[in-house]
């Protein structure tokens, strides 16, 4: 299990990285944390001729908390974001989800933006980007553009990024005041990809539910958002858990794999959501 040969490019600016990307086109692959990519290379499931290693690119390792979002640069490691107190204060969902990403040694190297660019429907972060109505900032030979989450995830392991585009940052949207968030998942072993997971945001105003929205892990092809505001009812004291579970079951389309059947995952994600609603409303 050793990677095939490749040409290693180590740009130091975004412009250089983009120039390499332009030159090598679809023969290149961006290497950031590499925690998903390098196993694929070692198993020779992919053998790109060029790796554009962005770890030396200046300015991509910053977390910025803004009024409407938390902006995370492409070299911010999961651990860095997880431990960032201002990011947690601004958007607790980030930490709530990140603690479920693999294990600490992986989180120390793996990048949050890289996970999103990998777009594994079993990953935690795509669901977070979807639920926060986040935006991916892409730079390519044709310039910069913002790609909203709803357009970013095209299919399993497939994004709207062009082969010559680099995701330089993402902006996770912040929730309105009075929003409670949570993240729950169930995996066979700690740190494994979840059999099913849910990210949830419930906005309350004086014990009245103004909005309830969820996105999911491992049970939808792409992480989209389910609006549960109707199903859950208005009063925080008596949420309609059965209606929530029904709505979740109707929304998801989980596959069967070697670890669980689709039917099981459907049940599981509905139950995880039900329990998470109860937990958030009883905080």
């Amino acid at each position: 299990m050793k990677p095939a040969p490749f040409v290693h490019h180590a740009p130091t600016t975004v412009a250089e990285a983009v120039e390499v990307l332009r030159a090598v086109g679809s023969h290149g692959k961006i290497l950031a944390g590499g925690q998903s990519l390098i196993p694929i290379l070692s198993m020779r499931l992919a053998s790109p001729e060029h790796l554009i290693d962005i770890n030396g690119v200046a300015g991509l390792d910053r977390i910025e908390v803004r009024d409407d979002c938390v902006r995370v640069g492409a070299l911010v490691r999961h651990t860095q974001l997880l431990q960032d107190e201002s990011a947690y204060a601004a958007l607790p969902l980030l930490r709530q989800a990140l603690v479920h990403v693999a294990h600490p040694a992986i989180r120390n190297r793996g990048t949050t933006v890289g996970s999103l660019a990998h777009a594994d429907a079993a990953g935690e972060l795509p669901s977070v980007l979807a639920l926060t109505e986040g935006v991916v900032e892409a730079v390519g030979p044709r310039g910069s553009r913002d790609i909203p989450a709803s357009a970013f995830f095209v299919g399993p392991l497939e994004t709207a990024l062009a082969a010559d585009e680099l995701a330089v940052a993402v902006r996770f949207g912040r929730f309105p005041e009075g929003t409670r968030t949570g993240f729950a998942e169930s995996a066979r072993r700690s740190g494994d990809y979840a059999l099913a997971g849910v990210a949830l945001a419930i906005t309350l105003q004086d014990k009245v539910i103004r909005s309830a929205r969820a996105s999911f892990v491992s049970v939808t092809d792409v992480p989209d958002v389910l609006d549960l505001s109707g199903a859950i009812g208005s009063y925080a004291a008596v949420p309609d858990l059965d209606a929530v579970a029904d709505a979740v079951r109707a929304h998801v389309s989980p596959d069967t794999d070697i670890h669980a059947t689709g039917d099981y995952r459907r049940m599981l994600v509905a139950e995880l959501t039900r329990r998470l609603v109860t937990e958030l409303l009883s905080r």
Binding site: H8, G34, Q35, S42, T79, A105, I106, R109
Partner: peptide, 12 residues
């Protein structure tokens, strides 16, 4: 910080 040395290249 703990990291997997099988998931990094020497040049990095």
């Amino acid at each position: 910080a703990p990291m997997r040395s099988c998931l990094m290249f020497a040049v990095q």
